[in-house]
């Protein structure tokens, strides 16, 4: 038996919004420790990794490890049927071929349940090594989303150059060029507005704007985003999900042919 409950549907809706542009389907691996989803987008360019810890759910029971392949478009449709302040319970029997989403209104007067067929997805699971990154940038997630949106108008690719003074985002194409420089915040009054850089070595890397823009669909999940970069390895874009866990996106830098 698997059962996981969240007092508020909003967070699950936001999580679905954060992945559904990149992934059509995904396998949710459920265990004692929580729920994990790892999947590559259709073109195998980026990797999405979602971790939700069991101890942060309002109720969590997982008697046997369970892998549930879900169509994320269908899951998003089902979650649209929940009000933001509804309690959501996800339930599945061991070895079941369906999963049930139950929504309960705050006054307990409306209870709805939606059953969804599970899929057998033959997805590869990738092992990701622990990496010490040359540069780790923490910045407001809205600012990052804005920069990705603005610079994508100029080019398919964006250069991110990080030094200890600051981080520079650049794009250039037929229309012209754009540069946005953010200095490291000197006085951190409000942590969510700060730009903080931890640098071992400066890095300059080029990334596809299309994917960066897809990652920023996670912006409503967290005020801050963390960018971890090293030469010649994938960038990690991480959004923390309050107490519940995190979503990480991996994207390899473009390379000279």
């Amino acid at each position: 038996m698997f059962e996981a409950r969240l007092m508020n549907a909003t967070i699950l809706k936001k999580i679905l919004d954060a992945v559904k542009d990149l992934l059509n389907e995904g396998t949710f691996d459920c265990s004692d420790s929580g729920i994990q989803l790892q999947a590559m987008d259709n073109s195998h360019v980026s990797l999405v990794s979602l971790t939700l810890r069991s101890d942060s759910f309002d109720k969590f029971r997982c008697d046997r490890n369970l892998s549930m392949g879900m169509n994320l478009g269908t899951m998003a449709k089902i979650l649209k049927c929940a009000n933001n302040d509804d309690t959501v319970t996800i339930k599945a029997q061991d070895n079941a071929d369906t999963v049930t989403f139950m929504f309960e209104s705050q006054n307990h007067e409306k209870v709805s349940d939606y059953e969804m067929k599970l899929m057998n997805l033959d997805q590869e699971h990738l092992g990701i090594p622990d990496t010490d990154y040359s540069c780790v940038v923490r910045m407001p997630s809205m600012e990052f989303a804005r920069i990705c949106r603005d610079l994508a108008q100029f080019s398919e690719s964006m250069v991110i150059c990080c030094t200890k003074e600051g981080v520079k985002f650049s794009a250039s194409g037929d229309l012209g060029s754009a540069n946005v420089k953010l200095a490291q915040t000197s006085n951190v009054d409000k942590e969510e507005e700060a730009v903080i850089i931890e640098m071992q070595e400066p890095v300059t890397l080029t990334f596809a704007c299309r994917y960066l823009n897809a990652f920023t669909k996670a912006t409503p999940l967290c005020n801050q985003v963390q960018l971890s970069m090293s030469a010649d390895v994938p960038l990690v874009v991480e959004y923390r999900i309050s107490d519940l866990g995190h979503i990480r996106y991996y994207l390899a830098p473009k390379i000279e042919e």
């Binding site: 195998h44 990738l126 092992g127 994207l251 390899a252 042919e257």
Partner: peptide, 14 residues
């Protein structure tokens, strides 16, 4: 010209 590598080439199949 820069090309976009496949993410799979950076990690191993677990």
């Amino acid at each position: 010209i820069k090309t976009q590598p496949d993410i799979k080439q950076y990690y191993w199949i677990a």
